[in-house]
Design a binder for these strands. Structure first.
Lengths: 205, 205
DNA sequence: AGGTATACGTACCGATCGGTAACATTGTCA
DNA sequence: TGACAATGTTACCGATCGGTACGTATACCT
């Protein structure tokens, strides 16, 4: 007897290699659960239950829970740089305005109810052991962030570009953490303004 | 860097109720394990094993694992403010120097091998749900930190004291996180310098 | 239609999770 | 010596953990 299935939501065009539908549902649910409540806090049983699939389906698409977590972070990484590039593209040739746009957006996100910080940062805290699949993705994301911020500090003409780039990174990470610690009205809402003050103080005179 | 176990720390005089020795051993071991590897990652079995005690002993001194975690954080909180007050006491009447001393110390700690960030911050990331015993202690610690930093920003004569205080908090939290993410040579080593730049840019002219 | 590869479900595994019951042993101080 | 509190011992609980063996349904391609 045909139970009422969920709404068909095939995004892929007809010609691409048809990926298992279950894998996408699983990853979508895992993304949401891992981000909101933490990776260690979520068991695979809850994921498959909420996704409307069964456990063997999960393990056919993902070798392990750790690798599923890494997949979640890889998708997070992709969306992260999309947001970053949007801020960059909005102000061509003006790195200071690019930073300001990116941080203003972060500041706004941190003021949303139930804000849970950066999935990358959180994963690194949850998995301190080097070499863990989730941590590897997280570390790569952060190193790339540092590289970009330092490059933008150079482009801004800072006296000490590496220090300014690192200072911006500290402010950003601080915003991610304090956003989920303080909620509305917390320190994270000042990240763009503080960054601008720091930039101003770091430019060549 | 946590436990300094040599120092005898009997607070009670001879008449007070003699505290169980097992409780101290358990808390010491839990402190070390929770801090280094995370609270969720450590089971009570490993704690009692490393402490050389048995599980019933743990549950005679602590109502639950969550409360043991909260006890760990309460001790962390105590030691945290001791370090803070040391930096303050070293520069009486000079809040800017106090901040600099505190952040220089943080910057140094972040460059130690196996640095694991702030136990408070990590606990808040591990337990996002409001009302969790561990999170309650963590949030109280962070609110107190914000209060002190803002008060010091006032004492420094900042144009916008709340913004500067919050900016310093962002830098500090960023140092805690990036310290454990990047290890040696990471952005956290610049926290004192960046804070000083931010302070300079925030003072009344 | 028929075969075949692929996706999926049922049922189960051993290990570990946090936590407890009941009782034996110890150390301390009056 | 007696009494009492603290600790140890052993065995156990139900729940959940991540992961899998194996049979069944479905889609596609001649």
């Amino acid at each position: 007897m045909p139970t009422d299935k969920n709404i068909e939501l095939t995004i892929n065009d007809g010609h691409a290699s048809a990926p298992p539908k279950a894998a996408k549902k699983i990853l979508d649910v895992a993304y949401d659960l891992f981000y909101r409540r933490g990776i260690r806090a979520i068991g695979v049983d809850e994921i498959v239950k909420r996704a409307g699939v069964t456990k063997p389906s999960l393990y056919r698409s993902f070798p392990s829970k750790d690798e599923l977590a890494a997949s979640y972070l890889r998708q997070y990484d992709q969306e992260y740089w999309e947001r970053f590039d949007e801020a960059v593209a909005a102000h061509p040739g003006d790195p200071r305005a690019q930073i300001k746009a990116f941080l203003t957006r972060i500041g706004k996100r941190t003021q949303m109810a139930e804000y849970r910080g950066c999935g990358m940062t959180n994963a690194a805290v949850e998995y301190p052991e080097h070499g863990h699949p989730a941590r590897v993705v997280s570390e790569a994301n952060k190193h790339e962030l540092r590289r970009r911020l330092r490059a933008m500090a150079v482009a801004m003409g800072a006296q000490d570009a590496d220090t300014l780039g690192d200072g911006l990174l500290l402010l950003i990470e601080g915003a991610y953490i304090s956003g989920q610690l303080f909620g509305l009205g917390g320190p994270a809402q000042t990240v763009a303004r503080n960054a601008d003050l720091l930039i101003e103080a770091s430019l060549k005179k």
